[in-house]
Amino acid sequence: MKKIRLLIVFIGAVLAPGLGRAESVVEGRVPLPKARTAPVMNKRYEIVSKGGVVAMNPPLAVVYLEGDFPAAAVQPVTQMSQKDLAFVPLLLPIRVGTKVEFPNLDDTYHDVFSYSAPKRFDLGRYLPGEKPVPSQVFEVPGLVTLRCDIHEHMRGLILVLATPHFVITDTEGHFRLGGLPVGRYVLKAWVDSKTTLERTVELKENSVLQADFP
C-alpha cells in the first residue's frame, strides 16, 4: 500500500506541471535594438596573439509568461560555456533554482565572476576540462552579468526568471512560446537591462495567440 501511495505521488509530481495546460501558444515579434559593435580584445601584454576576431551574437530578447507557477520538481541543470574567448550562449534565460555549469572549452584559463545583486560569485581560475565543472545555483530572480577576470572583453548574461515559460527570440525578434496554461497573464519581453516590454494576454484552450510587442 505504501508503494502504491509513493507511485501515485511520483506520477502526480511528474504530471502536475502539465495539469491545467491546454497547449496554448503565444507567438509574435519583439523589436530588437541594433547590433552592437564587436568587442576588441586587449592583447597589449600578450606575447602570443591569437584569435583576432571575437564571436558576437546579434541582439536577442527573452519572452516569458509572468505568473504564479509551482516550483520545479527536479532541479534544472544547464550550461554556459566559454568558447573562443566568449560566453556561449551570450544570453541564457533560466528558471529560479537552476544549476548552471560553466565548462571551459578554450585552451586557456577563465575566471568567471558576477557582482550582480541576484548572484555574486567568483569561480576563480579553472582549467579547460576541469572536473567537476564549476557551477552555481541561481536562487534569486533578476539579471546576472557575467564577466571574466582574465579576458576583459568577455560578457554574458543570465536572466533568472520565476517562471518555467520562457523562450529566446530569433535574430529577427520572432518568438513562439508553447505549452502554456490557459488564463489571463502578463507576457513580458526582456530586451536589455533597461528595457522590458509587457502586455496582457488571455490564453485560451488549444489556441494560438498572436502577440506582437510594440
Binding site: 576588441v40 580584445m41 586587449n42 592583447k43 597589449r44 596573439s49 583576432g52 576576431v53
Partner: peptide, 9 residues
Amino acid sequence: DVQLGEKIY
C-alpha cells in the same frame, strides 16, 4: 586598441 582583420593589431 585597434584590430584590422585577423593579422594586424
